[in-house]
Amino acid sequence: MSTRVGVVVFPGTNCELDMVRSLGALGGDARTVWHGESDLGDLDAVVIPGGFAHGDYLRTGAIARFSPVMESVSAFAAAGGPVVGICNGFQVLTEAGLLPGALGKNEHLRFICRDVDLRVETTTTPLTHRAQVGSVLRIPVNHFEGNYVCDERTLAELRDQDRVVFRYVDNPNGSLDDIAGICSEGRNVVGLMPHPERASDAILGSADGVPLLESLLTPASVPA
C-alpha cells in the first residue's frame, strides 16, 4: 500500500502542489490538508511545505502555529510520526517548538534563490535513511530567512546527538555551523531550508531530492 502523506496548506503556502506531485510520481499517496482541519485522519507522514504561511506576519511561521491543524501535527509528532518541514515549514516547526532554534534573516539581506550543495550528515531520520552520510546533493534554496540560529547549549546538543541532518557545503545565508537542516530529539521531526521537491526529476535540473522523498515514503525502515 502506498504511504499516505498529508501536505499541510496554510493561507499563503505555495509549494504544496509541487510536493504532492513529486511524492505521487514516486508512488506515494499524497494529499493536501487544509490548516483549519483538526483531524489528520490516517496518515503515515506529514509535510509542512514552503510558502508564506499567514503572510509571515509578525515573524515567519509565527501565526501558523495557532492553526487548528498544528495541534494534530504536534500530537502526531509526539506519537513518533514523521513530520518534515521545508523552508517556511521549517520556520513553522521552530515557532511551534517542535524543533529548537530560529531562522533569522540571511546575512547580506539577500533573498537567495538558486541551487546549493547540501551534505547529508546523518541517515537516522525519516528523510535521509535512503541517502548516504557524506553524500552531496544539489538542491535549490528559495528563502530570505534561512539563517539558522540557536544558543550554544542547543548547538552542542544538536552536534552531540547527531541531529544536524544537512550542512551547506558553501554557506549561502550565514547559518550557524553551516546548518541547513536539523531533527528533533526523537529524530522523527525534520526541518530543512532547501526544497527536495524541486529536485525530484532530471527535467527540473536535478533529481538529487529523490532519495530524500523516497526515504519519507518508506517510513518502516527508519532505524531506531
Partner: peptide, 8 residues
C-alpha cells in the same frame, strides 16, 4: 544576533 537591516 546578526541584524543585517541595522548593518545596511
Amino acid at each position: 544576533i546578526l541584524d543585517p537591516q541595522g548593518g545596511e
